[in-house]
Design a protein around this nucleic acid. Structure first.
Lengths: 120, 120
DNA sequence: GTAATCTACAACCAAATGGTTGTACGAAAT
DNA sequence: ATTTCGTACAACCATTTGGTTGTAGATTAC
């Protein structure tokens, strides 16, 4: 699933089909690549269940599957949950430790806001 | 970034380094692949800023960067936001349509919004 | 000092990925 | 009926990916 989300074109297709369902050729029209290439991207998204297809005449209408998007988000949320529970554990340790030596060298979650630019 | 999250081994490294920072060789010890392979995975995660490395003697200690994980999650949340706003728009359209067609006072949210998919 | 350890990096390889063109087939339009 | 359109799929190609081994530089241990 993350593999399916890894290509920009596929994320764009996903975004567009959230808005409203579109046929494969409608989608393909707006990308600077062949119809077959877009069709393969759609197939990858379909295999990951991030979209669903529906036949209407000779067209195949594509729409996003919000359940799967939510699922991806939930997986990442679990990582954040791990992080928060780690902080909670550290807080506990520090609270106990604070009675003894107050050492200012440690993980600094509040100030760890590196620039979250670049890298999609 | 999604590309960096696409490989299971890398997601596992990420999960492990959320818990506590570990050296590259500590990480490598638990995978059935060469040290160099793990090192390359770490490099990919580092390039995506999903982890940061810190030198301590001859070791390189790896820890997850929760800001970047939150960023990934936020991107997916935007997709969900698009989905919700699409629903909201459809509700608006139906409400306007009801008000325009009739000189009736007030929208009709009771049961008329039953078909959010055009032509399903 | 020398040896062992941890890391980085280059060169190489097989497989997957992202793209192409060409072909084929059902549905729609003429 | 013939053509056009929308789709699927195969074959092919270049690049990337995920892995390997080997070499070299630091740092630590003996």
């Amino acid at each position: 699933m993350f593999q399916a989300l890894a290509a920009r074109t596929r994320r764009d297709i996903l975004r567009r089909t959230i808005d409203h369902e579109q046929s494969v050729s409608e989608l393909a029209r707006d990308y600077d690549m062949s119809f077959a290439a877009v069709q393969k991207h759609v197939a990858v998204l379909e295999a990951a269940e991030l979209i669903v297809k529906r036949a209407e005449g000779r067209e195949r209408l594509v729409r996003a599957n919000p359940d799967m998007i939510a699922h991806a988000r939930a997986l990442l949320a679990r990582y954040e949950e791990l992080w928060r529970s780690r902080i909670a554990r550290l807080d506990d340790l520090l609270a106990e430790d604070a009675a003894g030596a107050r050492d200012d060298r440690g993980p600094d979650p509040s100030g760890s806001a590196d620039r979250p630019n670049q890298g999609d």
